[in-house]
């Protein structure tokens, strides 16, 4: 009897310890921590439709099966601030995904119906190498371009999956990640050809100008010089608005023009090393 009481106490104690260790972690961590073939969708906020889930799951699982990198989408729980999102996403990935992973997390600091959407990409292991800082920026760019509106999750996540697939494929094919490389070679031949082209154009313009000095006989197209002073009378004038168009062009961000490249890393609160980046749109 005493032995069974001790056993029961140990079990209860163990359970308390186990549960207490999950108190500070995202809620879904407990559900899938040990799952190897987990779904790549952790839609806690329920922003995806069933059809969306089918389509996105298919895209992300293809990447995992082909390249062995765990790529997933998750929505953060409520009340996660923008500043806390980086660590939250890192810890989520540590608990829910395999070692080589790429997680994209959507956060709604004002609630799911609010106007603000934070997006955070967290990478670990091989994911850090594959997605450089520049690559992450271009992924966010592609997502923004693809979105019809801020709630077009299917469009944005399809763009995300497509870019991630492409960048992993580039890495696997070339051994180098997709990045902004600074070309330091002098390329004298290219400079020479460009210079010769400039010389050719300048020579044509220069000799054209010299030849033009020889010609001074031209027909007069118009008779503006002979307009009678104050003779012009506008009897009818109207301006009718027809239609309007708006175009938008992305402003080149600093990351696009920097000369460095590579993937910057940081440590999560648990000590794990992660790459990634975030943007709100």
């Amino acid at each position: 009897m005493k032995k069974s009481k001790i056993s029961l106490l140990l079990i209860i104690t163990s359970l308390i310890v186990v549960f207490s260790s999950f108190l500070t972690l995202p809620s879904q961590a407990a559900d899938a921590a040990s799952s190897k073939a987990h779904s790549p969708i952790f839609d806690n906020a329920g922003v995806l439709s069933e059809n969306d889930i089918v389509i996105i799951t298919d895209k992300l699982e293809k990447i995992r099966s082909k390249y062995g990198i765990d790529v997933a989408f998750a929505t953060a729980e409520e009340n996660i601030s923008t500043s806390a999102l980086v660590d939250y996403a890192d810890l989520f990935a540590e608990r829910n995904l395999a070692g080589d992973n790429i997680l994209i997390m959507a956060n709604f600091p004002d609630g799911a119906d609010g106007s603000k959407r934070d997006w955070q990409i967290s990478t670990s292991g091989k994911g850090i190498t594959v997605l450089t800082d520049y690559g992450i920026e271009t992924i966010f760019d592609a997502m923004e371009e693809a979105a019809d509106d801020r709630d077009d999750y299917l469009g944005m996540l399809s763009a995300f999956a497509g870019k991630v697939y492409d960048y992993i494929d580039i890495y696997e094919t070339t051994g180098e990640p997709f990045d902004l490389y600074e070309d330091n070679s002098p390329h004298f031949l290219r400079k020479g050809i460009i210079s010769a082209f400039i010389g050719l154009i300048a020579s044509m313009i220069g000799t054209g100008s010299l030849k033009g000095q020889l010609n001074s006989v031209y027909s007069q197209r118009a008779a503006g010089h002979y307009t009678k002073k104050d003779s012009m009378q506008v009897t009818e004038a109207s301006e009718l608005f027809l239609f309007s168009t708006v175009t938008k062009t992305r402003i080149q961000s600093d990351s696009s023009s920097r000369s460095g490249g590579g993937s910057s890393t940081h440590s999560s609160s648990s000590g794990g090393s992660h790459g990634g980046g975030g943007r709100s749109f």
């Binding site: 923004e144 002979y226 012009m232 009378q233 301006e239 027809l242 239609f243 309007s244 938008k248 992305r250």
Partner: peptide, 28 residues
């Protein structure tokens, strides 16, 4: 105009009409 990420260009299209007269003198 622009925000932190995009430059926006709005093009308004109009149909403009003019009617009238102008005189010339001593066109050689």
């Amino acid at each position: 105009w622009s925000d932190s990420r995009y430059e926006y260009t709005q093009t308004n299209n109009f149909s403009v009409h003019r009617e009238g007269s102008v005189s010339f003198e001593k066109v050689p």
